[in-house]
Computed example of a mutant assay.
Amino acid sequence: MTSSIDRLTIFALLATATLPFAAFSPAEAATAQSCAVQAEQIRSQAEGADPKAAGKALRNVALAEKLCDAGNRHEAGKKFTLASSQLETSVQLADRR
């Protein structure tokens, strides 16, 4: 009886230890998908923006996509935010004319 309890305990400990690793795969897939969605949104905004601002924003989007591929979601988010703000500034200036 004690050997079955020990086996159950060992199995439970192994299952508990592997659960965090199983959760990383869906999270990485969701991160890659959100990077692609953000990139597409900024690219669509850049189509109607000032060409200089659009060029800067698209360069930052390309860099952000590379950062996403490398797994650095935090820095990629910063680049997406920068690209978005570059496009918003040009739109605001056009509205003020």
Score class of each variant (00 low, 15 high):
21 F>G: 01
20 P>H: 05
21 F>M: 12
37 V>R: 08
79 K>L: 00
19 L>H: 04
76 A>H: 00
61 V>R: 09
79 K>E: 10
79 K>Y: 02
37 V>I: 11
29 A>V: 00
17 A>D: 04
52 K>N: 14
58 L>R: 09
73 R>C: 03
56 K>N: 13
38 Q>N: 06
45 Q>V: 06
94 A>K: 06
77 G>D: 02
72 N>L: 04
43 R>Y: 03
86 Q>E: 08
24 F>M: 14
48 G>Y: 01
88 E>F: 07
77 G>L: 00
74 H>W: 13
80 F>E: 05
32 A>N: 02
5 I>V: 14
54 A>F: 02
26 P>F: 10
16 T>N: 12
66 K>C: 10
95 D>Y: 06
3 S>L: 10
48 G>R: 12
40 E>R: 13
24 F>G: 09
55 G>R: 15
58 L>P: 10
9 T>S: 14
2 T>C: 11
75 E>S: 11
17 A>Q: 01
94 A>T: 08
68 C>L: 11
50 D>T: 05
18 T>W: 06
86 Q>A: 02
82 L>F: 07
8 L>Q: 12
51 P>R: 14
68 C>W: 00
46 A>Q: 08
58 L>C: 10
81 T>R: 08
93 L>G: 04
71 G>F: 03
31 T>C: 03
83 A>I: 00
53 A>E: 03
31 T>N: 14
52 K>P: 02
61 V>S: 10
97 R>V: 08
57 A>D: 01
75 E>I: 10
97 R>Q: 01
17 A>F: 02
68 C>R: 02
7 R>D: 05
92 Q>R: 06
34 S>D: 00
97 R>F: 08
92 Q>W: 06
7 R>N: 02
88 E>H: 07
2 T>L: 14
41 Q>C: 07
27 A>V: 05
74 H>D: 11
22 A>K: 05
35 C>F: 07
54 A>C: 11
89 T>I: 04
48 G>P: 11
82 L>P: 01
